[in-house]
Design a protein around this nucleic acid. Structure first.
Lengths: 106, 106
DNA sequence: TTGATAGGCAAGTGGTGACTTGCCTATGGT
DNA sequence: ACCATAGGCAAGTCACCACTTGCCTATCAA
């Protein structure tokens, strides 16, 4: 749902992870950790990145595939298309761009 | 900058406000309050909506124009285009889609 | 089978953000 | 001049989220 998508995009570290996956798809957790450190000098723990990946996966932006002791993470840009059809081109996708399920009771 | 944009989109109430402005552009604060109440049964205070509008304006998603005692709010979808060029079509906009300024030191 | 690598689970902490409350300013009608 | 309307400012509360720490599981190589 939309809530998960935008929450996932709200964190700059998660956006960087998406950038990394655009540049090189199918990386493991440790690869991503290493890249964030060397490219941006990020001193985040492995668990921090792992939790970020879980959030991205929950939003459908990342799909993971396990092979032996490795877990490869792949980008999925399909959820991002919904942002476009909601506000940029609301006439596409059969009229409504607003997702009626995008709501939470407080 | 990107940080403000995604933070602005992270809240469901703010996304609803954008939906309202897509449907009818140039509304005042009280008009938006009324619409959110009648259409979604939202019991938010005027100040809450006012603060949301300030965040949206800080992100460049809303532009306001004052006329007498009225302040009209208009939608600006230009910042949303950058989301598309960053991950969906990174080859547009002269190569890089990643905004190097999208980073905060912790 | 031991050790190293790749990853997961769970509880705790600090900071940030959404919302409220109370009071203040400004414009316009009568 | 008065009052109602439209909006702003500032402080306080509360819940959530990012991150850490500590420990545990699984796969592979020697």
């Amino acid at each position: 749902m939309a809530e998960d998508l935008f929450k996932a995009l709200a964190d700059p570290t998660r956006r960087r992870i998406l950038d990394e996956l655009v540049e090189r798809d199918g990386q493991t957790l440790f690869e991503i950790c290493g890249r964030l450190v060397t490219k941006y000098g990020l001193g985040l723990s492995r668990q921090a990145i792992s939790q970020h990946l879980a959030v991205l996966e929950g939003a459908g932006l990342v799909v993971s595939r396990r092979e032996g002791r490795y877990k490869f993470h792949e980008l999925n840009t399909e959820p991002l298309e919904r942002i476009v059809t909601r506000w940029l081109r609301p006439d596409a996708q059969g009229e409504t761009g607003a997702d009626s399920s995008d709501w939470r009771v407080r």
